[in-house]
């Protein structure tokens, strides 16, 4: 575990810059492609990439206990998948979720 002693400052900085860039990019994309049918797909991908970046670079999930890694992986994947399901199969989902 000696690699934890290494200086990860540049790795953290690159991750932060990518997160900022993705945040600004998602705003631009939503403005330019507001009516595009595939926009939710793109937004879902951005949510997933940002989640993975925080988990890998800030929490170091790849070195964590498998339970922690699985919890993070699942939580980060669920919302983008639900977003895609709602965008493309909203009617079916609404029928299933009707009491």
């Amino acid at each position: 575990m000696t690699h934890f002693k290494n200086d990860h400052f540049s790795r953290l900085t690159v991750a932060w810059l990518v997160l900022v860039a993705l945040t600004l990019a998602s705003l631009g994309l939503s403005e330019w492609f507001r009516e595009a049918r595939w926009l939710p797909l793109l937004v879902a991908a951005i949510i997933w990439i940002k989640g993975v970046l925080v988990a890998r670079c800030f929490i170091e999930a790849q070195d964590a206990h498998p339970f922690i890694a699985r919890v993070l992986k699942t939580f980060i994947a669920v919302s983008p998948l639900a977003l895609i399901a709602t965008a493309f199969f909203g009617g079916t989902l609404a029928r299933w979720a009707t009491l």
Binding site: S30, I46, V54, F58, S79
Partner: peptide, 9 residues
């Protein structure tokens, strides 16, 4: 932070 990154979009 991860939770907010889902809420925002």
């Amino acid at each position: 932070d991860i939770i907010w990154l889902v809420i925002f979009p």
